[in-house]
Design a protein around this nucleic acid. Structure first.
Lengths: 219, 219
DNA sequence: CTATATTTGTGCTAAATAACATAACTGTGT
DNA sequence: ACACAGTTATGTTATTTAGCACAAATATAG
């Protein structure tokens, strides 16, 4: 996906620089919460962020995982509604913010920037629709495998080429794949037994990625 | 939501008229299928259309219901991917089509049209994210109630003010609310017993809308 | 109108998943 | 090093939902 910076004119860049603020968030710190009024386009520079929705009985569903450099927080503003999901830093994160009023003005004057958002929103909408079917129709094994594949695709591996470059609690893994924490733990164990992954605390090594993708796809 | 026509210049309108074709679809006729390459912006003029995704074991999940005048088919083109969902006419429908290449050119020359799509995509993305939580976390009663509420909000009532203005098979109701057909039938029956609705074949009267919304909200 | 296919309704059983309880483990701050 | 809180692990039970079978009702095609 083409970034924002590339499509900006020198004058646009000036405006961005003048209105850009950088914020540091600690692990588990809330960036914004459901129902609040959106004001900024957030740009994750360093760290990891999760977007989630509070469900029934305090259970949360992780909607999207964000990595550098990705943008978030703008959808609700564009739709002219309060946030329907919250955002939390999963690890210490450096995040830039530009007022959406400024973004709107830039879009008004820059066709390519408008296209950037049309493209980005369309992409995310497709992913969201696909997620609906994945989460509702796959069984637990398939859902957890899919979550792990998502982590691979989103954050990749460490230098050894097989350790996931993100450490999540079992509870967050459960929240990502729509199951209870116990079931996430149990299913992870069966994957270990089947030699698909190796687990050391929150460190997860994918030792048979092909098999993992197969489980994700078929069951 | 503001329509497309209002934001077009006279020249734009000329272009649209010159490239607009009208198609008639029969009940259950496929408009386009998953994995095909998107080519048109479709505009539903008369009738009802469902967008759906094929899931595991041929089970389908209805992603979105479309009413006149709403647009569809453009997301995949904007995202530059094949369709991730198919579209079928639920009743005889009259649908306009404009080549997406033309739409793209119009967007290039018309800032307000770009805003229309940014707004529309953002709105739908929020709905989709909300649907994820509704479908995954609510129990059967809540999900079916929610589906009925969606039908009310989307298609409204007939002249009597309480009969749903859409007749769907039990199977489609199930596909909309992520459950098996038997469970849709059974749960509808309990709603009838609880005097929330009255059923006469595919004709559904909402006799206690407040209660229905309550069930939808709390389970 | 009749034959045939499809849809609806209902009961029963099986499978999947959540819920709960409890113990072991881990990390963190003091 | 210790205490405490939070996390992980595992067994057991309860609940929810799917799956299947079959009969009745309804729609559809010839």
């Amino acid at each position: 996906m083409v970034g924002i910076w590339n499509v900006l004119t020198p004058e646009d860049k000036r405006v961005v620089i003048d209105n850009f603020t950088i914020h540091n968030f600690k692990r588990n710190q809330i960036i914004y919460a459901e129902k609040e009024t959106p004001e900024y386009l957030w740009c994750l520079l360093k760290g990891k962020v999760k977007k989630f929705k509070e469900g029934i009985g305090g259970r949360q569903q992780i909607i999207r995982l964000i990595r550098p450099i990705q943008y978030f927080g703008h959808r609700a503003y564009f739709a002219n509604e309060p946030y329907v999901s919250g955002a939390i830093a999963m690890e210490p994160s450096e995040i830039g913010a530009i007022p959406m009023t400024v973004v709107s003005q830039l879009i008004d004057g820059n066709r390519q920037l408008a296209w950037f958002f049309i493209h980005e929103l369309s992409h995310n909408l497709g992913r969201s629709d696909t997620k609906i079917v994945n989460l509702t129709q796959k069984h637990i094994r398939g859902r957890l495998a899919e979550a792990l594949v998502l982590l691979v695709d989103n954050y990749g591996f460490e230098d050894d080429g097989e350790t996931l470059n993100i450490y999540m609690s079992r509870e967050d893994l459960a929240n990502l794949s729509n199951m209870t924490t116990s079931n996430a733990i149990r299913t992870l164990s069966t994957f270990v037994n089947e030699k698909v992954i190796v687990v050391d605390g929150r460190r997860i090594k994918i030792v048979n990625e092909a098999m993992l993708r197969k489980i994700s796809k078929f069951g």
